[in-house]
Structures are given as structure tokens and as C-alpha cells.
Design a protein around this nucleic acid. Structure first.
Lengths: 233, 233
DNA sequence: TTGCTTATTGGTCGCACACTCAATAGCATC
DNA sequence: GATGCTATTGAGTGTGCGACCAATAAGCAA
């Protein structure tokens, strides 16, 4: 029998195959965790033999790091899209930023609107998957040095993106702060702190706790309380 | 040769042996991570055969959960010792709290002093190991349900202990808050948020970020800024 | 001292993992 | 249609894991 197994080989362009592998690995990482990114698992996902994955990633650790980097970059772009022309990475690029002009309605958002939308999105249940990924990566970083470096780069990317929005807001006169970097880091600390519970079904948390990101942002940026709720619609 | 291997069997009281196993597992969990708590590893630690560990813990998952519970309880007692007679766990006891009277100098500390000391200790580098353990447990909870329950119980224990100090302070007129629970959770969120970096060597962080726990506590408890620094000595 | 309970051993099984490498076959090029 | 490059396979290695179980011996009680 052995009916449904694919018999015919499909020979692809190395670059395309590699991208395909990374995409599959990123999807598995996001949905099931970085420890599920194994040669066998990704090979099965793509209906190829494990040896092929080894061929593109001689060390499995590199694939895991790449999967995390790809997934995290994708999620950041979804949560807080970069404005056209925005320079948000002082470090070597993690990924090529698509250089096409962004849709008009995005470019039209004010810094307050962008920040409000980001904070709204990081409160939803959809954000749990991303929280899980970060916890996963931060823990696995303990043992895998390649991943550790990737995590550091992603941290810088997320902080840089958020910092950019804050700077835009200061420039536009919407925000008031002396140290955009410190505010960005403080916000990320709060979001990380709230996100660690993503794997453990936490009972209802006090409203003051759920509002921490908004409260922190409004306090540190000199916004009237409630501003960000209203801006989020 | 096979010189140094232990030949003679040592037969111990089951309760004592079990305690020994848990202690060894907790030490390994704290120092090397929960995934290093394996039958073979703990057996080697105690110079016994792996089968013996299986005998006491038919499911390895139970041992891992027990190791985390033991380590976390021990660290909480070290960071924020329970006052004599303090009732800090509404849930079934995670561990028997030693009922002996505490040293005089500890019992003499005011709530402000206890809180200040706790926050000082959670800032030191010694706290990194505990942060690592929490990240580890929170991530592994994704896959291990027994551990997940233990994490929930420990969260409750830590929150309860902190909440107790806050209530004492309110009662003593040192703190002012309407909702001690919310304050306790907010503090833990900030500490968790700062702790997630324990595995990734983070560059210097802005002073405002490092002071977040103190700032949060002082703000939420109606303390004059600087109070907790001074109380910590 | 003898005997009995049971804590402890030693060995085995099956599984999943990363990694290696010679053999094979797709496909672009001629 | 034939040829050559190389992407892809298939098979095998070694490691570490949890789980299982019959045999053994430690140490207490009779």
C-alpha cells in the first residue's frame, strides 16, 4: 500500500525552498512552540524528508532561531506597522522591510492613534500566542546561544519600533517625555509582565491591572487619563 | 576497576528518601532548569539507580512539578518571610509552613521595612535564578498540566504573601490603598516584566526602568517618593 | 538467629531527537 | 533528446528520555 505518500520528488530553487522551510518553522513555532520545530516536524509539514531540512540548516539550532525571528518580525509588523520611511533598527536588519508605500489609512494615523491601536491589540486574546512565543524564546535562550542572540535583536526591534512612535508623538506635540527610550522600555516591561500568564489560565484580574499598559503610557507621556481608550475607538 | 561506584545499597525510610529526592530535584531545577530534572539526573545526584526515582514518582511529570513547588516555596520564604501567625494562603497549603517563632529582628520589621527589603532583594542579581525558574515553569506549563496547576498555586502563594504585607501596612497606617490585592498583582506584574530578561544578557537599562518596582509601590501605596529606598538602608 | 517485608537494583523496551553520507533523480542547459 | 549539476532521498548512527518488571538484599521484627 503506502498509498498517500508522495512519491515524486519536487525540486525547487534553493532560496525558495529555504524560505518555505522558514515559513513553516515560524508557523509551527507560533502555534505549537519552538521545541516542536524539529527536523522531522518541519519535514512532515512540507512533505519532504528530514534530511532535506538538515541540508538547508546543518545545525537545527539555526532553524529554531530563524523560526523565532521570522515569527516575531511578522507579529511586530502586524501589531505596530512601521510607518513609511521610518528608521526603526539601529542594529543590522533582522529582515528586509517591505519598501512599498503603506495603505493610506495607516499612514494617516496619528502617533496617539498608532499607540492606542498597539496597546489595544496587545490586550486582546490574540496576543496570547505572541506572549507564549516570547516566553518560549526567552526560556529556550537559556540553553541555545544562537536563539539568545536572535531574542536580543528582536527586543531591540520591538523597542525601536515603539520608541519611533513615541518620538513621532513628541515631535507632533502629542506626547510629552524627556526620555522616549525609557518610556518604550517601561511599556514593554509592563506588557511582558502581563504576558507571562499566557500559558496558565489566570482568573479575572483587577481592572487596575488590566489597564496598566494604558495607565503607564498616559502617565509617562503626559496624556489625560482616558485619551488612549478613546483613541482606540 | 569501576572503583568509585557505590556497591552497597542504603535502604532508607520512604518519607525521608522522598524528601531527599524532592530536595535534589528542587536544587537541580533552580540551578540548571526544570528540563534537567530527569530520572537519570536526579538518580545520579543521589547516587541511586533511576528506577528508584520512578518508584517514588511513577510519573516523571509529578517530580518536575514537585521540584518547582519546593524551589519556589523556598525562595519565597527567603525573599519575603511570613510573619508569625500570618495567614497567607487561602488555597490548600503548598507546603507546611514551619510553625516555630521567627527571629526577633524579623518580627520587629515594619511592613514598610519588609516591603523595602523584598523589593531590594528582587533587584539583586541573586534574583536572576528565581526569575529563570519562573520563566522556565511558565513556559513548561504550556505542555505539562501538573506543573501548570503548581504554577497557579505558587502564583497565589506569592500574591497572598505580598498582599499580607500590604494589608499589615494599611492597618498600621503606613500604606494607603483601597485594593491591596490589585497593588500586589501590579507589583508582581512589574517584577515579572523585569525578570523575563534573566536569560538574555541585557545591556544597561534606564534608571526609570530599574526603579519601576519602587516607583509603583510608592505611588500605589501613597508613600513619599524615596521612602522605600531609605527603608531598605 | 531466622524470616519477611519492601526498598532498591539491573536490565530492557520503545520512542524521538540531531546528524551523516552515499545514492538517486529532477530539471535546466545544451 | 542527451548531459551534468545538485536538490533530494533513504538508510543508518548514536544519544537521552520515560516507563516497566523480575530479581535482590537491607534491616526490622519475631
Amino acid at each position: 500500500m503506502s498509498s498517500s505518500v508522495q512519491r515524486k520528488r519536487i525540486r525547487k530553487d534553493p532560496a525558495a525552498r529555504r524560505a518555505e522551510i522558514v515559513a513553516a518553522a515560524a508557523a509551527v513555532a507560533l502555534a505549537e512552540g519552538l521545541e516542536c520545530v524539529t527536523l522531522r516536524r518541519i519535514a512532515e509539514e512540507l512533505a519532504v524528508r528530514p534530511g532535506l531540512i538538515s541540508h538547508y540548516f546543518p545545525s537545527a539550532e539555526d532553524l529554531v532561531a530563524e523560526a523565532f525571528g521570522s515569527a516575531a518580525t511578522g507579529e511586530l509588523d502586524r501589531l505596530l506597522p512601521a510607518e513609511h520611511g521610518e528608521l526603526d533598527r539601529p542594529l543590522p536588519a533582522e529582515h528586509a522591510v517591505p519598501d512599498r508605500p503603506l495603505p493610506a489609512e495607516r499612514a494617516a494615523l496619528t502617533p496617539t492613534g498608532r499607540l492606542a491601536r498597539f496597546l489595544a491589540r496587545t490586550s486582546g486574546e490574540e496576543y496570547d500566542a505572541i506572549s507564549r512565543l516570547w516566553i518560549n524564546a526567552r526560556h529556550l535562550s537559556r540553553y541555545r546561544s544562537v536563539l539568545r542572540d536572535r531574542v536580543a535583536r528582536q527586543e531591540a526591534a520591538w523597542r525601536g519600533r515603539l520608541e519611533g512612535v513615541i518620538r513621532d508623538g513628541v515631535e507632533a506635540g502629542e506626547f510629552a517625555t524627556e526620555d522616549p527610550t525609557a518610556v518604550a522600555v517601561q511599556l514593554l516591561v509592563v506588557l511582558d509582565g502581563l504576558g507571562v500568564h499566557a500559558n496558565t489560565a489566570t482568573p479575572e484580574r483587577p481592572a487596575a491591572v488590566l489597564r496598566m499598559p494604558l495607565t503607564t503610557a498616559e502617565r509617562e507621556l503626559g496624556l489625560r487619563p482616558g485619551t488612549l481608550d478613546e483613541a482606540a475607538g
